[in-house]
C-alpha cells in the first residue's frame, strides 16, 4: 500500500463510477468522480491529483483528448486508462499519451487495485528522485526539464512519460557507471507488467532518438555488451534557465 492518494475517477456509467468510488474510498483514498470530460477538467483546475482513472468513451470528449489536456496541466499526475476499447492500436495510443497503464473492461477489482498501487508507487519514486533535478539539464542534444516532465530539441518540445523520466533519472543518478538492464527494469517497471531486457532495449532506442545527434551511432547512452547501458558524463550539463 502506497498510502492514501487523491484520485480523479472519470467514468460516465453511473453504476461503475459509483461502485469504484465507494470501493476506492474504502481503501483510504480521496476520490473525486467526474461523469464527463468537462466536469473532469473543471475538477482538475485545483491542486494536482496523484492519479487519474480515465474512461475513453466519454459523452462530451474522448478520454484520450482529456488525458492530453490533463498531462499539459499536471504532468506529474499518473494516468491510468480504464476502458472498453481494447485493441492494440487503442492501447498504443493511450500509452503514447504518457499513461502509466491501460486496463480493459471488464476487469477484476483486485487487479485494478494492484495496478493503481503500482502506478502510485512509481509516481512517488519519481517525485522523490526528481527533487534532485529541479533545474533543466542538457543531455546530448536535448534540453530535459524533469520537473515539468518535458524535453526540447531546438524549438520542438515533447512531453516525457513517467517511465521515460524514471529511466532518465536513474541514468543521471548513476552517470558514468554501467547500469544493468535489470536495475533499470526494477526502477521503471512493475513485475506484473512482465518486462524483459528487450523492453529496456526498445525503451533506450526511443530515448536515443531524442537525445543523440545520430541515434545509429550513440555517443550519449552507450551500450555495454551483455550488461546494459552507460550515460556519458561529458554529455550532461546544466542548461540555461
Amino acid at each position: 500500500m502506497t498510502g492514501a492518494a487523491r484520485i480523479l475517477v472519470v467514468e460516465d456509467e453511473p453504476n461503475v463510477g459509483r461502485t469504484l468510488t465507494e470501493r476506492l474510498i474504502a481503501e483510504g483514498h480521496t476520490i473525486e468522480w467526474a461523469r464527463t470530460a468537462s466536469e473532469a477538467l473543471s475538477m482538475s483546475q485545483g491542486p494536482a491529483f496523484d492519479l487519474a482513472l480515465l474512461d475513453v468513451g466519454l459523452p462530451d470528449q474522448s478520454g484520450f483528448d482529456l488525458a492530453a489536456t490533463l498531462r499539459r496541466r499536471h504532468p506529474r499526475t499518473a494516468i491510468v486508462f480504464l476502458t472498453a476499447f481494447g485493441t492494440p492500436d487503442d492501447r498504443v495510443r493511450g500509452l503514447e499519451l504518457g499513461a502509466e497503464d491501460y486496463i480493459v473492461k471488464p476487469f477484476h477489482y483486485k487487479e485494478l487495485l494492484l495496478r493503481i498501487e503500482n502506478a502510485l508507487r512509481r509516481a512517488k519514486l519519481l517525485a522523490n528522485a526528481e527533487s534532485k533535478y529541479e533545474r533543466p539539464l542538457l543531455v546530448g542534444r536535448a534540453r530535459i526539464d524533469l520537473k515539468r516532465m518535458e524535453a526540447a530539441v531546438g524549438e520542438e518540445k515533447v512531453s516525457l512519460t513517467h517511465k521515460e523520466c524514471a529511466v532518465l533519472t536513474l541514468l543521471l543518478e548513476k552517470q558514468g557507471a554501467v547500469l544493468a538492464r535489470d536495475e533499470i527494469l526494477d526502477r521503471a517497471w512493475a513485475p506484473d507488467e512482465f518486462p524483459t531486457p528487450r523492453t529496456v532495449d526498445n525503451f533506450i532506442v526511443r530515448l536515443r532518438r531524442l537525445i543523440e545527434a545520430d541515434p545509429a551511432l550513440p555517443q550519449v547512452i552507450r551500450s555495454v555488451r551483455g550488461v546494459g547501458y552507460q550515460l556519458d558524463t561529458a554529455a550532461v550539463r546544466e542548461a540555461d534557465a
Binding site: 453504476n15 461503475v16 461502485t19 469504484l20 472498453a84 473492461k105
Partner: peptide, 20 residues
C-alpha cells in the same frame, strides 16, 4: 458485443464487492 463490456464490468464489480 462491445457495448456489453460496460454492463459486464458493472455486474462483475458489484458481484466482487458482495463477495469481498
Amino acid at each position: 458485443t462491445h457495448e456489453l463490456r460496460t454492463p459486464l464490468t458493472s455486474i462483475r464489480l458489484q458481484a466482487e464487492s458482495l463477495a469481498d
